[in-house]
Design a protein around this nucleic acid. Sequence first.
DNA 1: GCTTGGACCTGATTGC
DNA 2: TGCAATCAGGTCCAAG
Length: 264
Amino acid sequence: MEGRRILRLEQRRADLRFPLPDRFAERVANARIDRLARQAKFLTAHLSTDEVLVMHLGMTGRFTISGEPPGAFHQATGGTIAHDHVVFHMEGGETVTYNDPRRFGFMELWPAATFEAYPRLKDLGPEPLSNGFSAAYLDTALRGKAAPVKAALLDQSIIAGLGNIYVCEALYRAGISPKRLSRSIPGLRAARLAPAISAIIAEAIAAGGSSISDFAGTDGALGYFQHRFDVYDREGQPCKRCGGMVQRIVQSGRSTFYCQSCQR
DNA sequence: GCTTGGACCTGATTGC
DNA sequence: TGCAATCAGGTCCAAG
């Protein structure tokens, strides 16, 4: 999409999680995508119209690409056409389709001139693979916090881009209990946790992501990281490290999987 | 100010 | 077999 024009946008419903932008199709028609980027879990397309199109997949959103010649790209299997909500008809003939059964994703347009003030991105913490993220940063960010470390790691203003699965896996890798209070992490535990977080993310990206039920690449290929989960979705199964049993608990409404024996 | 829990919505799975 | 209840990867907001 980068460097190409959106010839036409087809909007098939008024809203996703939030209402789609006013006059959406009109505002992006013939706009060139000057830069396509990602910040945390947000996708950003800087348009030649001096607006930024911000896109989020929520939990079940996906983009699929189809075009000519057939076979260059193909529609991912499993996506129901009924949930194809937005279709970008691109210069060159390809179509890029946003499909999202649960409609937890969203798209918004924001003026490029004030994009630094865009509310959903302005308070994000550093990304796990960026220079701004380190054990020293975790020390500072978690110091004095009362919330369990599991909740803190899901907080995008502390670290950007971690979701429930990777938080569970990173805490397991570091041998830290998800119930431990954040304020007890600074020091040696932060020194273990920071590299564990970075490693989990790097490995998941290298494996093509995690396919629980919905995830797939733009060509429909599934990710493989789920085959490497050490604790996530392994309730009742033996811990791969110590042989103890993997437990499932609920913390702030989300499932947490961990080993009570070797995560302290 | 920080933390938690509910809401958003549909589909797959589980249990009766 | 069919139906109802439950749960799911994220984010925001109100309430405590």
